[in-house]
């Protein structure tokens, strides 16, 4: 059982300066950029063009193919479906577009969601494509996220594949004995399978804990092997959120 590697599917290996940046630097830069975008007044349309331009530079420097970016952006479609309804549902002053009366406030709300969500999701796509999961954990560790949370995330990444494979084997075992999930009457069988899976995962947890104890675990992780960031890396990475903050500040002064 080698697993499908679901956990690192989003990472696009390449040798760029963006890829080489330590995880914590990229996390701070991404968070700063998203905050700057979030603080930009929605009426200042040009500012979002500025943000998009800055992000486009990051995408180009990370050598992320535009088709990959667009394909991954589809994850926000369900949220946008809600945004599209807003001009029809919101109250207040209305304008006529192609013969349909739309709420001005609703249109602005929809635009706000569309622009900010797209920029936010794109930022996380760039982060995930340039940072493997280990570096992401290292980054969170360096940013002083509680050790217990890091450990939980680390185990989720490590054992996610194994649990999926276990689920798959249980499904094959059920189907090999003629089980077909047709309707609600099959729910008890599936519920028992979920229960059995829980017990197996729990038992594995106990065995992993034993293995950890046997190698000197006393409750705290010794820390992964870390790489520190040099000032030039900080400067390069923080240029993005600082430029976005400047755009946001300019937008506020004009609004």
């Amino acid at each position: 059982m080698t697993g499908v590697g679901y956990a690192d599917r989003l990472y696009l290996p390449a040798d760029t300066a963006m890829h080489r940046l330590p995880g914590h630097v990229k996390l701070v830069a991404a968070l700063g950029f998203v905050l700057a975008v979030g603080c930009t007044p929605r009426e200042q349309f040009w500012a979002f063009g500025g943000h998009a331009g800055l992000l486009a530079i990051a995408v180009a420097r990370a050598r992320i193919p535009i088709t990959v970016l667009l394909r991954r952006l589809t994850v926000e479609l369900p949220f946008l479906a809600f945004a599209i309804l807003m001009p029809f549902l919101a109250s207040g002053r209305r304008v006529e577009v192609l013969g349909v009366g739309l709420s001005v406030t609703g249109l602005l709300d929809a635009w706000n969601i569309l622009a900010k969500a797209t920029l936010g999701v794109s930022t996380s796509i760039v982060l995930a494509a340039t940072t493997n999961l280990r570096d992401l954990l290292l980054g969170l560790e360096r940013l002083r996220l509680p050790s217990l949370l890091i450990q939980i995330m680390s185990f989720m990444i490590r054992y996610g594949d194994l649990i999926l494979a276990e689920t798959h084997r249980m499904r094959i075992a059920r189907e090999s004995r003629g089980f077909v999930a047709r309707d609600v009457r099959q729910v008890p069988v599936l519920a028992r399978s979920v229960g059995a899976l829980f017990i197996r995962v729990y038992e594995r947890g106990e065995r992993v804990h034993l293995a950890m104890l046997s190698r000197g675990y006393t409750g705290g992780m010794p820390g992964l092997l870390q790489t520190a960031a040099v000032p030039a890396q900080w400067a390069g990475a923080l240029a993005l959120p600082l430029a976005a903050a400047t755009v946001a500040a300019a937008a506020w002064t004009r609004s």
Partner: peptide, 16 residues
């Protein structure tokens, strides 16, 4: 799989 619980082989061997 019970013994290798860290994100990479290096981290796992360094754990002890």
């Amino acid at each position: 799989d019970d013994q290798l619980f860290m994100p990479t082989v290096r981290d796992d061997i360094a754990f002890g």
